[in-house]
Amino acid sequence: MDYIFFYLALSLIIMHEIDAVRCKEWRIFPGLASLGDKVGYIIFLFGHLPLFVWALWYLNQSENPDNFIIGFSQFCILHIGLHLLFYKHKYNEFKDWISWSLIVGAGLAGLFQLIWMSSC
Results as ranks from 00 to 15, higher is better:
L45S: 11
Q61P: 06
G105V: 01
H89D: 08
F46W: 12
V53L: 09
D66C: 02
F68C: 07
L78D: 05
G81T: 01
L35W: 12
L114P: 01
K24Y: 02
F94V: 09
D96Y: 06
F46P: 06
A20F: 02
A20Y: 01
V39W: 12
Y91I: 00
L35K: 13
S99N: 10
G47F: 05
W54A: 14
G47Y: 05
P65H: 12
K24V: 09
A55S: 13
D96G: 03
F72D: 00
H48Q: 11
C23F: 04
K88M: 12
S34K: 10
D19G: 05
I70W: 02
L102F: 03
A109D: 11
H79R: 09
K95M: 04
S101L: 07
D19F: 01
V53P: 05
L78R: 01
K90T: 06
M117W: 13
F75G: 08
L82G: 15
Y58M: 02
W26I: 11
I80W: 02
G107K: 00
S73T: 03
V39I: 13
H83W: 02
D19C: 01
L32S: 10
N64S: 12
Y41F: 15
V104M: 12
L108N: 05
W97H: 14
L32W: 08
I98H: 10
L49H: 00
L32P: 11
F75Y: 11
A109H: 10
L51Q: 12
A109W: 07
S99K: 02
D19S: 03
D66T: 14
Y91R: 07
Y58C: 00
L84C: 12
R27D: 03
E93Y: 03
L84Q: 02
F44G: 10
Y41Q: 12
F52M: 13
G107T: 05
H83F: 03
L51S: 13
G110H: 01
D66A: 06
V53I: 15
F44W: 12
I18C: 04
L51N: 13
G47E: 13
K90D: 11
L56R: 01
M117Q: 15
L108D: 09
P65K: 09
F75C: 14
L32V: 04
L82Q: 13
V21K: 10
Q113Y: 05
W100F: 00
Y87G: 05
W97V: 14
R22Q: 11
N92M: 01
